[in-house]
Design a protein around this nucleic acid. Structure first.
Lengths: 342, 342
DNA sequence: ATGAAAGCGCTAACAT
DNA sequence: ATGTTAGCGCTTTCAT
């Protein structure tokens, strides 16, 4: 599709200068005579020369590249984060290497090693599933790391977090207020930090209300519609007394919604359902989904901002940002309510 | 966060061999004595040495990196493509540089130049908005290019396409069969190739049915829910006789659905609505959306497969793949039908 | 204001 | 089976 690449030497020769002078021109250094600069620039334009970022990176030990690790880019939660991240990155002349791990914790280490080999200046890791010890070595290789929705016990990494415990608490409290006492939790993956925190919030709210959840009121699943559907099925078969389901996220809630429709339960009359994240879906399904709103795009942009600060040794700005989730009450938990948000 | 990076020289010195031998070990070359290999490997493990992909790329002129250019990664159509793309890429030890262009055609050229500077082995460009002439220079720099949902008149690039004209035709034909004669088209961006093709399909179906669409039955908009909502508003105000709206994609259709709900029109009784893509949303909104199904994840994985073939000079495999879209009829166009797919 | 030399961390080609 | 040499395309430092 293309001939040999034009290099800095080619340009130098054509312009009749040393390649050093070309380097000065492309880096906008002041110490070049205007006439020379113009001549060189003209050759650059004519040849379509583009400096090799690779060669430059080898010298400068900076790649202007950051890694973004997500469990599933097709999950709207993470694609919105990616969007926000990309915006801030490209505004700062950075570019993003995208890695998808599935729900495979060992893939997390693999892709981190790949990113390290590629000398990324930093990484943003979302929804980390791996346990603390094994992932730390992989993470500590990097000049800069920002975690999204995960915190470690031992070491504090810079992070952007949604207060998931609070979210789980608020949502559960809402269900209790609506009169429910038998509330199931369709939890996400065992390995999800967010999932654990949401579960804790759920347990806390129930405890405060004097409700003692049975062990099998909680059912884990993958964070997809399909798995949520299966999990809701299992849960409601085992525990027909449940009158409300709190779900790990909106995708899972959607699955639950679907199972209820399929099994002839009406929502919220027979069973109330609440989700997490407030993806666009949540406001348009029928019944519209009660959920905890997380500012997903902002999570991504904040994470990149912080990462760039870390890369540039602004260490004071690299700590933790905790965002409060907001409960959005819609029809899926309350027959008399309607969608409150677009 | 980390000390100086371990290099191949460090490993060589610690293992008491030349750095060439280390190179042989990390590249799994056969001509190393087992004892030596083990010793070197041990040093590698101890030091956590990872070869620099940057340095390697400089020598080999291969980066094992591909660029993925999309208008909007948070659009579920493109995030699913990204998912499929990432899967095939990482299975082949390739990694993806993600670029988001918004609806800004000049950004397309910018990001392509950025990707070129980074010596990507190839690029996959989705939903290209830019006109043929200005984008060709930017595209022809690359060793390999695969377009998704865009075809040029002059030069044929390897591409993966959904037959959008057919899709527009089938959807329109369906609306006509349902008895509609005044059918509006909420078109996407002027600059979208898919949009143009879908419009042509619409025009063709109407022509065959002897319907002459008025000029202002067509309303362009950005491919988002918000803009679709506005566009539907404009269109139905101008043309209250319209009894059906075909929409550029499901997001736009969703906006139309929302406008109809807000303005007291019931769907499909007062007005029928159909979309495009069959994103997950389409099957769960109420009423469920009639739409043209596009195998999004497969589009992404096919594109990467083809790109890798191009990169590896399997030129016979680099042509065009045209996927037929499938009309999925749901409640939004027919009161008696129900969702046909999960 | 410009050029020459060294070197970033690796692979490829040619020794031995 | 291992080592030596050259060079990928740049930036940095030091000369002039």
């Amino acid at each position: 599709m293309s001939r040999r690449r034009v290099t800095i030497d080619d340009v130098a020769e054509l312009a009749g200068v040393s390649y050093q002078t070309v380097s000065r021109v492309i880096n906008n250094r002041p110490d070049v005579r205007d006439a020379t600069r113009e001549r060189v620039q003209q050759v650059i334009d004519e040849t379509g020369y583009r400096p090799s970022h690779i060669a430059r990176s080898l010298v400068t030990a900076r790649t202007a590249t950051i890694g973004l690790v997500v469990p599933d880019i097709s999950n709207p939660f993470f694609s919105a984060i990616a969007r926000g991240a990309e915006q801030v990155a490209s505004a700062n002349k950075y570019i993003i290497l995208l890695c998808n791990t599935g729900e495979d914790a060992s893939r997390e280490i693999e892709v981190l090693n790949m990113l390290h080999e590629r000398y990324v200046d930093g990484v943003i890791v979302c929804g980390l599933r791996q346990k603390e010890a094994p992932i730390q070595t992989a993470l500590s290789q990097f000049r800069a790391v920002v975690l999204v929705n995960r915190r470690f016990k031992e070491i504090r990494f810079p992070a952007v977090l949604v207060d998931d415990l609070l979210g789980g608490y608020l949502a559960s409290q809402h269900l209790i207020k609506m009169g429910h006492t038998a509330i199931g939790f369709v939890a996400g993956p065992f390995t999800s930090y967010s999932g654990i925190k949401r579960l804790q919030g759920y347990e806390q709210a129930l405890a405060e209300a004097g409700i003692e959840p049975e062990d099998d009121w909680v059912q884990h699943c993958l964070p997809t519609v399909e798995d949520g559907e299966k999990a809701a099925h299992l849960l409601l078969n085992k525990r027909p007394e449940l009158s409300a389901l709190l779900c790990y996220n909106d995708l899972v809630a959607l699955g639950a919604l679907r199972y209820c429709a399929a099994s002839g339960r009406s929502v919220p009359e027979d069973i109330a359902i609440a989700g997490f994240d407030d993806i666009m879906l949540a406001s348009v399904v029928s019944p519209a989904l009660t959920t905890c709103h997380a500012p997903r795009k902002e999570l991504g942009s904040m994470a990149v901002s912080m990462l760039l600060d870390c890369i540039n040794d602004q260490e004071d700005k690299c700590d933790e940002i905790v965002v409060k989730p907001e409960l959005v009450i819609r029809a899926s938990t309350s027959a008399t309510q309607f969608a409150t948000a677009a």
